[in-house]
Amino acid sequence: MLPGDFQPSRPTNKQLIKWGILSLVSLFFVAVVVGVLMFVISAWLGKPLSVFGYDEGPDQPIAFPHTRHVQELGLDCTFCHRNVETGAAATIPPVGLCMTCHAVAGDGLAEVEKLREVAAAGEAIDWVRVHRVPDFVRFNHSAHIIFFSEQDNILSSEVCAVCHGDVGSMVKVEQARYLKMADCVNCHRDNNAPTDCVTCHY
């Protein structure tokens, strides 16, 4: 054998098994890391992947079924979210509004009893927030509702679905759209709305 001449020796079976296990383990770790990254990146760019229930909405202190109120009873969105046509926030209804019906309606239902307890104590319900934009974003509900309802000649309550999805069919409210800046900007472009930064950021 000449000096410097490289002649790999045939690995022993023991070595082969060791390497096989090592590569399998590394492959597994890489897969885990990639999986986590995909999850995080997708959540960063859009919504979390639909695994382990991360795409679902949060549990609320009172399991309020939109399906019952909207689909079955036919309530309009603006019946409860009263400020949506006039102000920046759509606003969550106060307990008092719930009690206008639930003082009599829904006897025996566990969630309604919870509501009545809260009302009797004069407290507010600590709802968990589902939709959130960062605090350097100035989102105004009224501007969007008025624009779409005029453009498409539809009712205010039909505009909500553009961003929020069909809340009426959700048992547990979840975020339907990405609501990332790209999502906002694309929609603004499509509808010829201003894309100047100070439209939303000031």
Partner: peptide, 15 residues
Amino acid sequence: TYHNTEGLNVQVYNR
């Protein structure tokens, strides 16, 4: 920081 269509010199904080 850029100039917007209304003549304002704008500072975008999040950028």
